[in-house]
Design a protein around this nucleic acid. Structure first.
Lengths: 206, 206
DNA sequence: CGTACTTTTGAATCGCATCAAATCTGGTGG
DNA sequence: CCACCAGATTTGATGCGATTCAAAAGTACG
């Protein structure tokens, strides 16, 4: 893992090369725990590969997933608090960048460019996640697919950069339901599908 | 609407009284359009009452909701871009605070306290919305209810500050499904319900 | 060339949405 | 104080669509 190269390629991290001195690459195996709820915040993390999950466990033994993350920063809120609020564990063997929190906070305070990039990134993320919430509130598979193309695509065209199986997961559907609905919409002339390129035809008002 | 009092009561807005000179209260009726996609960003908005919706319309005539907002800031991303990216319309007669964007940006740049509060608020919002996404990905009504109590409540107890009907909406369920599932969980001894106070008993591991 | 994973199809089941309607509730005005 | 109304709450019946389980076919990769 060439951290220097990686940071140079990321528009946010590139604005603060000084952080290079306060970051490590760590490789973790499935089921390892990265942070425990209640621990003092020492690092902020960036997922390079694999998957981590933020989970809250109750004394009653139930466990709820608060976030799954496969790429980018997670737990951004740890920058503004002193303790972690949930456990983070490795769902799938992963590689992380681990930044020391104090230099990171200091960089946000002092480096205007870095800070603006950071704020732009989290507000963009917020917009995206809110759209996903609205999408998941739709009850039918077809509606979610159309919503996805309208909100994530350009001019009714989406280029999928993931497998359909993982897309199904993102849509809150089983992969079977997604496959079947895609086929139906294609048969009905609502979608034109060419490999990973999906075109929304839909010429009728709701 | 006593804007001054309102801002003094909000921990974020209270840190920047100077904004008082650049904010107006506006009352709008249902179906009015607040901003159009493509317009230059002139204001950031804060919902005091009612409901607004951010929607994206396609030329094909479909319309998807990107965000519903009943309280607080929406479209925070407009601070970091020059044009609005979607339409915003009034879903339910509402009252808004309308801040001029430039003084707002300037305050974020220059007022450290205000900026830190702002970042804390959007990261908190991000955490909350992500948890809601995970919740909406759950397929059963019971799972969503338990997830809600675990993630939004304290120690397995939640005090609802909304009607069950609107809670159902938030959970992505019909109100009928919510009522029925609450009753069933109560009968099964999983929940103890006293008015708006709901206690999660659940003493078994999944 | 074999293995792991995705894609695809089938059949059965179940839970939620939907439509309908009755009851309860808080708030308003007479 | 009561009549009334809008909205929330609750219960019932029905149907659809997504899940679930199962299995086959296709694909990528070492």
């Amino acid at each position: 893992m060439d951290i220097e190269q990686f940071m140079a390629d990321d528009p946010l991290l590139a604005t603060c090369p000084g952080l290079l001195e306060h970051v490590q690459y760590v490789a973790l195996r499935a089921d390892e725990t990265i942070v425990h709820a209640g621990q003092k915040v020492r690092h902020v993390f960036y997922v390079v590969s694999g998957e981590v999950r933020l989970v809250r466990r109750s004394r009653a033994g139930t466990e709820v997933v608060l976030q799954r993350c496969r790429q980018g920063f997670f737990s951004e809120a740890s920058l503004t608090v002193s303790q972690y609020h949930c456990d983070v564990l490795v769902a799938e063997e992963c590689g992380l960048l681990r930044f020391q929190v104090e230099p990171f906070r200091q960089a946000l305070d002092e480096n205007n460019l870095f800070r603006n990039q950071w704020m732009a990134r989290i507000t963009r993320e917020l917009r995206k996640v809110r759209a996903q919430c609205e999408r998941l509130s739709l009850h039918s598979a077809a509606d979610r697919i159309v919503h996805y193309i309208e909100s994530e695509g350009n001019e009714g065209v989406i280029e999928l950069v993931q497998t359909r199986k993982s897309w199904a997961l993102e849509l809150g559907l089983t992969h079977e339901a997604l496959y079947r609905t895609l086929k139906r919409l294609q048969d009905e002339g609502v979608l034109a599908i060419d490999k990973s390129r999906i075109h929304l035809i839909e010429m009728f008002k709701k």
